[in-house]
C-alpha cells in the first residue's frame, strides 16, 4: 500500500502538486492520465522515493521498487545484455534469464549491441525489460509505450500485464487505450497544481 498524505511539491516558485491525498492498494494497475506538465512524472518520482514532498508524506509498504524512466537511462558502455545484468541479483543474472527477457522484448538479436546502435524503440524496450526483469513489488513506468508502434505495443503489453499481477503498477500515459491494454484503472490528474486523482 502507498498512502499519499497531504503532499505538496514545489519547484522554486512553481507548485506542481498541492495537498494531494490518495491511497494505492498493494496490487493492481493504475494509469495516471492528464495534460502535459500536470505533475504525473513528479508524482511517479515521489512514489519511487527519488524525490520528497516539501509538505506531507508518502507512506510506503513496498520494499523493492522498479522503474522504467521516460528516458531509457542505459549505460552507453555496456551492451544490451550487460545493461540488463547490471541490475539483476546474482541469482537472476544467469545468461538464460537475461536471454529470456531479451527474447520477450524482441531484443535477442541485439544482445551484444551497444545502446548507441539501437533505435529509440529498442532502447525503450530494453528499459522496460530491465524494469520487469528487476521485479519488485512496485513497478513504475513513465510513458512505457511512447516509442513503440501499435503492433509492438500489442505484443509487449501481455508481458507488462503479467508483471502487473504480482506488483502494484503505476504508469503514466496519454493514451486511454494503454489503460485498457494493461487492465488498469485510470486516475485522472486534476487541478492546477495537481490536487486530486479521480478514478473512472
Amino acid at each position: 500500500m502507498i498512502e499519499l498524505r497531504d503532499i505538496t511539491r514545489r519547484f522554486g516558485e512553481r507548485t506542481v502538486i498541492e495537498n494531494l491525498n490518495f491511497t494505492f492498494p498493494d496490487k493492481g494497475a493504475f494509469a495516471l492520465m492528464g495534460p502535459s506538465g500536470c505533475g504525473k512524472t513528479t508524482l511517479l518520482r515521489l512514489l519511487a522515493k527519488l524525490d520528497r514532498p516539501e509538505i506531507g508524506s508518502v507512506i510506503h509498504s513496498h520494499r523493492k521498487i522498479s522503474m522504467a524512466f521516460q528516458e531509457p537511462r542505459l549505460l552507453p558502455w555496456l551492451n544490451c545484455e550487460d545493461n540488463l545484468k547490471l541490475v539483476l541479483s546474482k541469482d537472476n543474472s544467469s545468461s538464460e534469464n537475461t536471454q529470456k527477457w531479451l527474447r520477450l522484448f524482441e531484443l535477442s538479436d541485439t544482445a551484444k549491441q551497444y545502446p548507441s546502435t539501437l533505435s529509440g524503440c529498442m532502447k525503450q524496450r530494453l528499459s522496460l525489460a530491465r524494469a520487469l526483469a528487476f521485479g519488485g513489488d512496485l513497478l513504475l513506468l513513465d510513458e512505457p509505450f511512447s516509442a513503440l508502434d501499435q503492433a509492438l505495443k500489442m505484443r509487449i503489453a501481455p508481458h507488462i500485464r503479467e508483471a502487473c499481477r504480482h506488483a502494484l503498477t503505476v504508469f503514466v500515459t496519454h493514451d486511454p487505450s494503454d489503460a485498457d491494454l494493461l487492465g488498469a484503472t485510470v486516475l485522472h490528474c486534476q487541478g492546477s497544481p495537481l490536487n486530486t486523482l479521480s478514478e473512472t
Binding site: 519511487a48 527519488l50 523493492k64 521498487i65 522498479s66 522503474m67 524512466f69 528516458e71 537511462r73 549505460l75 558502455w77 555496456l78 547490471l86 541490475v87 530491465r130 528487476f134
Partner: peptide, 24 residues
Amino acid sequence: KQLLEMAALFGLSAKDKLLAIRIP
C-alpha cells in the same frame, strides 16, 4: 545524474556504481 539516480533506484552496490558508472 540520471544514471546515478537509476543506479540508486535499482539498488546498485557502491562497487557496481564505481565500476559501471563512476570510472567510465
